[in-house]
């Protein structure tokens, strides 16, 4: 059983979010999508609520230590939903696995081998 240092991950996510916050201002009209994360074992999961995105063509941009998710709502095509998903250094940002279900996008990220968030 691998223990995860959730506090450390939370701190790093918070810090990366501050560092990349300027991306939110790139499209001033963009609406921030609700995001939550969970971590267990070797996986960090981001849950992105893309409400009203019925048939998504979701844009995932991979930047150093952050994923940028963009999608348009079917009900309001002019409205862009935007989410920043910070990725702590011991998780692999380059290989996100994407799952879509009922208006939620789940992004799974695996810990790099030898990653150091374990206690």
């Amino acid at each position: 059983m691998v223990a995860i240092d959730l506090t450390r991950i939370a701190e790093e996510i918070e810090r990366l979010e501050r560092r990349w916050a300027s991306l939110y201002r790139e499209v001033p009209s963009a609406e921030r999508a609700e995001v939550r994360w969970t971590a267990s074992g070797r996986t960090l999961r981001w849950h992105v609520c893309l409400e009203d995105v019925v048939e998504p063509d979701i844009d995932v941009e991979i930047l150093p230590r952050v994923l940028v998710i963009r999608a348009r709502r079917d009900t309001h095509p002019e409205s862009l939903l935007l989410a920043l998903l910070p990725v702590p250094s011991d998780f692999d940002v380059e290989q996100p696995r994407l799952y879509w279900e009922f208006g939620y996008l789940e992004v799974r990220l695996s810990r790099r081998s030898g990653g150091g968030a374990q206690q």
Binding site: E55, P56, D57, I58, D59, V60, E61, I62, E94, P96, L98, Y99, W100
Partner: peptide, 12 residues
Amino acid sequence: ERQGQFYSVTRA
């Protein structure tokens, strides 16, 4: 394309 949905994935 995955699970019938389309994703644009942008990398460096």
